[in-house]
Write a protein that binds this DNA or RNA. Structure first.
Length: 579
DNA sequence: GCCGTTTTCGGCCCGACTGTTTTCAGTCG
């Protein structure tokens, strides 16, 4: 949790506790402040060290909240929040995670039954005590009982690699229905963000009810959360899947709106306002002759909304791929005609980081090669783990065995349908040493060097040392992070990328959905610094070759073009780089 | 509690859905 998230969480708890006590308006003020603290590009804690006045620049933070932020940063506590917690000693965060339970419900149930924790909530529901409380009934009690377990489990955002197949499953299931005129994923899933809060599906149809009925019958749905005629939600595994139904004439505007990101939409809405236009989920409206544009969501003359392309065109901008919509400069670039020509899924021609049963893979060299050929790759590099820091239990291949493997790979290559490169995934020690002897490295075609141990603290010096090693071609999963599990090394990506560009060493996007390392933001920095990117799957079995798409879309989130990526080159181009 | 101003008070986003209510409150996105 970053420091900003930490401060925002206190403010949100403040809001919840006030709301539970039926306080009006203040909760909204605290929520708004929390949201803006969370979204603030700089370190709010550092800002707070400059005193309350320095916090002025954050929207929604006035004198009262500013002094609380300063108090929190300086003492680690907010006295008033401690008081509120004493008055209402509940586990607000975990209780409100239960679907359908908000701050007011928490407050009421504490007053009536003294419920403070998830366990107590579950016990009270099971004992039938909740339906006795005024305002509650048997149905509510049942819902709470069903949702407690889910609240306990679903504490993390789902990995893209799990959410994406789930979302595509819903879309495939609904797309064939005659009532569905258009359908698409929206939200962070459409932007291919590395983790997903929920799955958003948007459908254009004249017959909402029929679509909702079909949706709630989707075999992937474990439970129906709600179902109306314009929207419905189901629970699928650990995530919530939201369906929205709109009139076909509003599909483009709704898709633009629900794809986000929020920051992108705020920015683009302001572009609209500057042009006397109004932009929302219903379209783009010319409000130059309208007295009060805010009076009606559909006020003014509608000039776009049926297609997403039309929405952007109405603002004199080209349509832009969802991966770019993070307010990382794409709106300025679109206005200047400088949008990147992003790499596409079909552009990657080979995999330069895969494992076999020589190390921790499950398949032989021949099987991995055959798999790559039938996947459609033009070439493949075999890069098993070397011994060294991080390789325990005999996983790594010692230098003398690597020499033997070179012979086997060459033998397989003679029979193979595609060129096969010899290689290794060597380890980068904490002081930047490469764990394989130089004599062996020079014999290999492709040397991937990756950090596997000591994955905390600043890793920039260590990685730069590896980049400068003359035999290293690619830095594998540079930070070593595992999403939702460990954050990996802190890396000054700009400095790393500049070194990589100077030394003709590529930086990997490891396409494994648990890694996506480098991530989108880092890729953007690396590309801007002129570094070459390699998109590899780190496959341990042929079935993993198709994970490459997660790498490609991560590259797109980092504004990478085909020419920025090493393994979009043909074999000759690749050989040139390796030499 | 914040903000903007018709500038020190008065208003604060909103629509869909559910459940418990008999006209609405709470939750969610």
């Amino acid at each position: 949790m970053s420091a900003n998230d930490d401060i925002a969480a206190r403010l949100e708890e403040f809001a919840d506790l006030l709301e539970a006590q039926d306080v009006d308006y203040k909760p909204r003020a605290y929520r708004r402040a929390a949201e803006n603290v969370r979204a603030h590009p700089g370190d709010v804690a550092r800002l707070a060290h400059g005193g309350e006045d320095a916090l002025d620049e954050i929207e929604g933070v006035g004198d009262a909240i500013a002094s609380k932020i300063v108090e929190y940063v300086e003492t680690g506590e907010i006295a008033e929040l401690e008081d509120l917690r004493e008055e209402l000693p509940v586990e607000m965060g975990e209780l409100t995670r239960v679907e359908g339970v908000g701050p007011k419900t928490v407050g009421t149930l504490y007053e009536a039954l003294g419920i403070t924790t998830l366990e107590e909530l579950e016990a009270a529901a099971a004992a039938g005590e909740i339906q006795e409380v005024s305002g509650f009934g048997a149905k509510t009690e049942q819902n709470i009982l069903e949702n407690v377990e889910f609240a306990r489990e679903a504490t993390e955002r789902e990995l893209l690699g799990e959410a994406r197949p789930r979302g595509e499953g819903v879309v495939d299931y609904l797309a064939g229905r005659p009532e569905v005129e258009r359908i698409d994923l929206a939200g962070s899933l459409r932007r291919w963000k590395e983790t997903i809060g929920d799955v958003d599906v948007l459908v254009a149809t004249e017959e909402g009810e029929a679509v909702v009925d079909a949706f709630t019958d989707w075999p992937g749905a474990d439970a129906v959360i709600e179902a109306g005629d314009q929207k419905a939600s189901v629970r699928s595994g650990e995530v919530r899947v939201d369906l929205r139904v709109v009139d076909p004439s509003e599909f483009g505007s709704a898709l633009q709106y629900f794809t986000g990101s929020k920051d992108h939409n705020v920015k683009i809405r302001n572009v609209a306002i500057d042009r006397d236009l109004k932009m929302n989920e219903y379209g783009v409206f010319d409000v130059s002759d309208v007295e009060d544009p805010d009076a009606d969501q559909r006020a003014g003359e509608r000039i776009a909304g049926e297609t997403e392309e039309g929405m952007y065109e109405a603002l004199d901008m080209p349509w832009m791929p969802p991966e770019l919509r993070e307010n990382w400069g794409e709106i300025e670039a679109a206005r200047d005609g400088d949008l990147p020509d992003l790499i596409d899924e079909g552009d990657v021609r080979g995999d330069l980081h895969v494992h076999t049963n020589w190390s921790d893979g499950d398949y032989t060299v021949a099987e991995m090669v055959e798999g790559a050929a039938s996947f459609g790759h033009d070439y493949l590099a075999i890069t098993d783990h070397a011994t060294g820091p991080g390789m325990v239990g005999g996983v790594g291949v010692p230098d003398d065995e690597l020499r033997e493997q070179i012979e086997e790979v060459r033998a397989v290559a003679e029979e193979a349908d595609i060129p096969v490169f010899t290689g290794v995934e060597a380890n980068i020690s904490t002081d930047g040493e490469i764990s394989v002897d130089d004599d062996v490295l020079t014999e290999l075609d492709v040397v991937v060097a990756s950090p596997h141990a000591g994955l905390d603290g600043d890793g920039t010096d260590r990685l730069v040392a590896a980049v400068e090693h003359p035999e290293v071609d690619i830095i594998g999963h540079p930070t070593g992070r595992y999403i939702n599990q460990r954050s990996g090394l802190d890396v000054d990506v700009e400095r790393l990328a500049e070194a990589a560009a100077d030394n003709d060493t590529a930086l990997e996007i490891n396409a494994n959905p648990a890694r996506l390392d480098l991530g989108g933001g880092a890729v953007k920095t690396a590309v801007e610094a002129g570094a070459t990117i390699a998109i590899n799957t780190d496959a341990h079995q042929p079935a993993s070759y198709d994970l490459v798409r997660y790498g490609v879309h991560t590259a797109r989130r980092g504004w990478a073009e085909e020419t920025d990526v090493l393994n979009t080159r043909d074999v000759e181009g690749l050989r040139e780089f390796l030499e």
